[in-house]
Every structure is written in structure tokens, then in C-alpha cells.
């Protein structure tokens, strides 16, 4: 999702933006420039490594936290079919988190460090998961809009310069398509249902539209690290270009549903061949990223509790593995 990970606020000096002029740096950039992939044991600039760890781990954390808004509805899905679908989708998100943690680990950070960064609040995850899911229509809007925006963001990362990340993204993208389609199907069902159901779909759309647009990160004018990430082929399309593409494909989909996008400034621009849309409330995005969204505290608390409550399972697995090893060794002796 989550080019937000590449957009580092001004004043954050944790990733150096140094001049890269050593012979190794130049060789490295030359490889990138001809679209060669970088593999884990290849030489790479420290800042490239750090940027990737940050981006991939934020992406992984987003998948893991992203299970919560939808997990909320598994027990209350309206039919057995919808429940099976939602379970499969949430399981996919756990899987995506695992692919991505593995990819991050190839850069020399341990799983424990990654988990610790999430639980301590040191690491960020996508702002979108800090919004609540009060109605069933939110499951439709999330699949359609949030996963739709995620696909838009993730498809270009399948071509990113770091091999393990690109390969993980290929897998993720294949699976995300189901996520978006099942969400849109929920929206179709609701918008063709009773007036109350249609109103519920419209309400969900009203609440998720702007946060979905914010998933693409700050505007290109404000995005500090985009240029370097573009040069390294980590990021391949700019935030604003991706956001525009998302708006362009989504407007007709909303029209098909007979729903209205909550933006008075939205209109087709025949000159540019794109939809014009209203200004995003950037202070809201900053506020949510800073930890003050509607659900930030709840999400981290739930994650911490899940981790603590699972401690005995991890311990038991270790004890069992040790016991099996000891038995095998005794049998062999």
C-alpha cells in the first residue's frame, strides 16, 4: 500500500540523503539504470538498504494491522459465503505480512526487531487502518477502495529494483485482485438492495473515499524522498500520478453503483483527459500518521495483546521442537 513509507517528513534525518559518488555507488547506480535487479548479497549503499527496510517493514506492518478492521466483521458476516470470503481475505493479509517480513529480513534486520518496532510504536503503518469499521458496508468499501488503492500502489513495486521485494509484490498483487472484486461485489449487493442498504453503502463510501486518496501519500510537492527512491527504482510512479489514476478508474465504478463520491469539485476535464478533484485535507493525514487517528491506540493495543497472548504458543512450540530433537538423537544413539 504503502508508498507512504517512502515519504519522509521534512526534518527527519534518520535516512541520510548523501551524495553518492564512490566507485561502488556509481557502479550500483549504473546497474539500476539498466534495470538490473539487486539481490540480498550484492553490494548496496547503506541508505538504499535503510530505505528499503523502512519501506518493506512498513508495508508488512500495514498488512498485519490491516487484519483488524476486517477481522472485526468475521463473526458477523451476513452469510456463510461472505464469512468464508472474509476469512480467506484476512488470512491473505497475514500471508502478505509474512512474505514482506521475509523480504525485509534479507536486508539484515531480524524478525524480532521488526515486530518490536511495530509493537513499540516506533514503526509506522498505513494511515488507512486507523479508521473504524462500524457497518458491514465498510467491508465492501475497504475491498473496493482500500484494496483498489493498494493495488494501484503495489503494481509498480513489482518492478522495483530489489529482487526479494519485487518477487513478494508479484505474489501479493495476484492475491489482491480477489480482495478488490469481493469488496465491489458487496457494494453491488448493497446498492441494489433496500433503501437502507443503499444508504449504508453510500455512508461507507463517504467515510472511506478521502482516507483512500490519502493512502497515496503527500503530494509530490511535499514528498521529500521520492526523487531518491525514483532514482533507485524503488518507487516508480509518483504519488500524485498514482492518485490521479485511482480517481480516474474509480469514478465510473461509483457511477455504476449509483453512488455519489463525496467531493463537490469532482468533474471530468476533457482537456486533460482526467477527473479534477478537490483538495485533500492534509492536516487529517498528518494527524493520523502522528498517532491521533480514530483507532491508532486501539490497533496497537490489540496487536500487543495478540503478541503477548500468543507467547505461550511460541514457547510451547520451542519446547516441543527441543523434545522431538532429543528423542531423535536418543533413537539414533
Amino acid at each position: 500500500m504503502y508508498t507512504q513509507g517512502l515519504d519522509i517528513p521534512k526534518g527527519d534525518k534518520s535516512i541520510p540523503v548523501a551524495a553518492h559518488n564512490s566507485p561502488e555507488d556509481l557502479r550500483f547506480q549504473a546497474r539500476i539504470d539498466v534495470d538490473e535487479k539487486i539481490e540480498p548479497r550484492d553490494w548496496m549503499p547503506a541508505a538504499y538498504r535503510k530505505t528499503l527496510i523502512r519501506q518493506i517493514s512498513q508495508h508488512a506492518h500495514s498488512e498485519v494491522i490491516g487484519m483488524q478492521p476486517e477481522g472485526n466483521w468475521i463473526t458477523r458476516a451476513p452469510t456463510l459465503r461472505r464469512k468464508s470470503i472474509l476469512l480467506a481475505k484476512v488470512q491473505d493479509e497475514a500471508g502478505h505480512g509474512l512474505y514482506l517480513y521475509s523480504a525485509a529480513e534479507t536486508l539484515g534486520i531480524s524478525r524480532d526487531e521488526l515486530v518490536e518496532q511495530l509493537l513499540s510504536g516506533a514503526a509506522k503503518y498505513s494511515s488507512i487502518f486507523n479508521y473504524p469499521t462500524p457497518t458491514w458496508a465498510d467491508m465492501g468499501a475497504i475491498g473496493w477502495l482500500v484494496d483498489g488503492a493498494a493495488i494501484m500502489n503495489q503494481v509498480p513495486i513489482c518492478r522495483c529494483s530489489y529482487g526479494p521485494y519485487a518477487r513478494a509484490m508479484v505474489r501479493v498483487c495476484k492475491e489482491e485482485s480477489f480482495h478488490q472484486r469481493q469488496g465491489y461485489e458487496i457494494m453491488i449487493a448493497l446498492s441494489r438492495g433496500t433503501p437502507e442498504q443503499k444508504a449504508m453503502a453510500q455512508d461507507a463510501l463517504n467515510r472511506w473515499w478521502w482516507p483512500s486518496l490519502m493512502m497515496f501519500g503527500p503530494s509530490d510537492k511535499e514528498s521529500l524522498h521520492s526523487a531518491q527512491s525514483m532514482k533507485w527504482n524503488i518507487k516508480r510512479v509518483s504519488n500524485d500520478d498514482l492518485r490521479q489514476k485511482f480517481v480516474d478508474v474509480t469514478v465510473p465504478q461509483a457511477e455504476f453503483l449509483g453512488l455519489t463520491l463525496p467531493d463537490a469539485d469532482l468533474k471530468w476535464n476533457a482537456e486533460t483527459g482526467h477527473y479534477d478533484f478537490g483538495e485533500i485535507d492534509w492536516s487529517e493525514l498528518q494527524n493520523v500518521i502522528a498517532g491521533n487517528g480514530p483507532c491508532n491506540k486501539q490497533r496497537i493495543k490489540t496487536r500487543r495483546e495478540a503478541h503477548e497472548n500468543g507467547a505461550w504458543v511460541r514457547e510451547a512450540a520451542n519446547v516441543y521442537a527441543d523434545k522431538q530433537r532429543a528423542r531423535k538423537a536418543a533413537a539414533a544413539a
Binding site: D92, S102, R111, A321
Partner: peptide, 24 residues
């Protein structure tokens, strides 16, 4: 090769691989 994962032992690695890498 499709990726990697952590597991307490080899049996768990196979089980987790089934869930993580062969859902379809």
C-alpha cells in the same frame, strides 16, 4: 524457491509453508 519463513522445527516449517505459500 518461493521465499522463506521461521519455524520451531522442520515439521512446523512444512505446515507454515502450506499456509503461507500454497493458499491457492
Amino acid at each position: 524457491h518461493v521465499g522463506s519463513l521461521h519455524a520451531a522445527d522442520a515439521d512446523m516449517a512444512i505446515e507454515n509453508a502450506r499456509d503461507a505459500y500454497t493458499r491457492r
